[in-house]
Simulated assay, not measured.
Amino acid sequence: MRELLLELEQAVQQQKPVCYTCLVETRGSTPQKPGAAMLIFSDGSQVGTLGAVVWKPKSNAVHSAYSTRMPRKS
């Protein structure tokens, strides 16, 4: 988790588009439990894992993260 947070901080500082994902619920036997986190970058690369699970976003948040411009620092 520490590596993931450091990567997130670096991405924000560099104004690199990134989407933070966090597993909130599982059913049955899963390799990851709630709280597992992953960063997804616009080039498709990732840091962390949600495991070998099928995840269904409840919104188009990943697309929104990449199509929305990050605010510029003053």
Score class of each variant (00 low, 15 high):
residue 39 L to P: 02
residue 45 S to G: 04
residue 1 M to W: 01
residue 5 L to F: 11
residue 1 M to F: 06
residue 17 P to H: 00
residue 56 K to F: 14
residue 65 A to H: 04
residue 46 Q to H: 08
residue 51 G to M: 10
residue 68 T to R: 06
residue 40 I to Y: 01
residue 34 P to K: 02
residue 53 V to A: 14
residue 61 A to M: 07
residue 50 L to V: 05
residue 57 P to G: 06
residue 22 C to M: 15
residue 15 Q to M: 11
residue 6 L to W: 10
residue 61 A to S: 09
residue 29 S to H: 12
residue 36 A to L: 09
residue 13 Q to K: 12
residue 42 S to E: 12
residue 16 K to F: 00
residue 65 A to M: 04
residue 18 V to D: 03
residue 12 V to L: 08
residue 3 E to C: 02
residue 63 H to I: 10
residue 16 K to E: 05
residue 22 C to W: 10
residue 57 P to F: 08
residue 20 Y to E: 03
residue 32 Q to V: 05
residue 50 L to D: 13
residue 32 Q to F: 06
residue 47 V to W: 05
residue 17 P to C: 02
residue 21 T to K: 15
residue 59 S to T: 15
residue 64 S to R: 12
residue 14 Q to L: 11
residue 36 A to C: 14
residue 29 S to V: 09
residue 40 I to L: 13
residue 56 K to L: 14
residue 3 E to L: 10
residue 41 F to M: 01
residue 14 Q to G: 08
residue 37 A to K: 12
residue 44 G to S: 01
residue 61 A to P: 01
residue 42 S to P: 01
residue 33 K to I: 01
residue 37 A to I: 04
residue 29 S to D: 12
residue 61 A to I: 08
residue 68 T to P: 01
residue 26 T to Q: 11
residue 67 S to A: 02
residue 71 P to T: 08
residue 67 S to K: 00
residue 19 C to Q: 13
residue 32 Q to G: 09
residue 20 Y to F: 12
residue 32 Q to A: 12
residue 74 S to V: 07
residue 20 Y to L: 11
residue 49 T to V: 06
residue 12 V to A: 09
residue 57 P to M: 12
residue 63 H to Y: 15
residue 52 A to E: 12
residue 30 T to D: 10
residue 9 E to S: 15
residue 43 D to T: 00
residue 11 A to T: 03
residue 74 S to T: 10
residue 14 Q to V: 00
residue 38 M to F: 03
residue 43 D to S: 03
residue 51 G to C: 07
residue 15 Q to P: 02
residue 21 T to G: 15
residue 35 G to M: 11
residue 26 T to G: 00
residue 31 P to Q: 03
residue 63 H to Q: 15
residue 8 L to D: 05
residue 12 V to T: 06
residue 16 K to T: 04
residue 9 E to V: 15
residue 47 V to Y: 03
residue 74 S to K: 08
residue 51 G to K: 13
residue 33 K to Y: 07
residue 16 K to V: 05
residue 1 M to Y: 03
residue 46 Q to F: 02
residue 43 D to M: 03
residue 37 A to W: 03
residue 39 L to G: 04
residue 8 L to H: 05
residue 13 Q to M: 10
residue 19 C to E: 03
residue 71 P to Q: 11
residue 72 R to M: 08
residue 67 S to G: 00
residue 18 V to C: 06
residue 53 V to K: 06
residue 11 A to F: 01
residue 4 L to D: 07
residue 54 V to H: 12
residue 8 L to C: 07
residue 15 Q to A: 09
residue 52 A to T: 06
residue 33 K to E: 11
residue 39 L to Y: 00
residue 34 P to N: 02
residue 62 V to H: 08
residue 51 G to R: 12
residue 14 Q to Y: 02
residue 25 E to Y: 14
residue 2 R to K: 12
residue 20 Y to C: 06
residue 25 E to A: 15
residue 10 Q to L: 07
residue 68 T to S: 09
residue 5 L to W: 15
residue 59 S to I: 05
residue 59 S to H: 05
residue 44 G to A: 06
residue 53 V to R: 07
residue 17 P to V: 00
residue 51 G to E: 09
residue 58 K to D: 14
residue 1 M to S: 08
residue 69 R to L: 14
residue 58 K to C: 13
residue 12 V to C: 09
residue 49 T to W: 03
residue 66 Y to Q: 00
residue 57 P to A: 07
residue 8 L to Y: 08
residue 54 V to G: 09
residue 62 V to Q: 10
residue 42 S to R: 04
residue 34 P to R: 07
residue 62 V to A: 14
residue 44 G to D: 10
residue 49 T to I: 05
residue 42 S to Q: 11
residue 19 C to S: 08
residue 67 S to R: 02
residue 30 T to E: 10
residue 38 M to I: 13
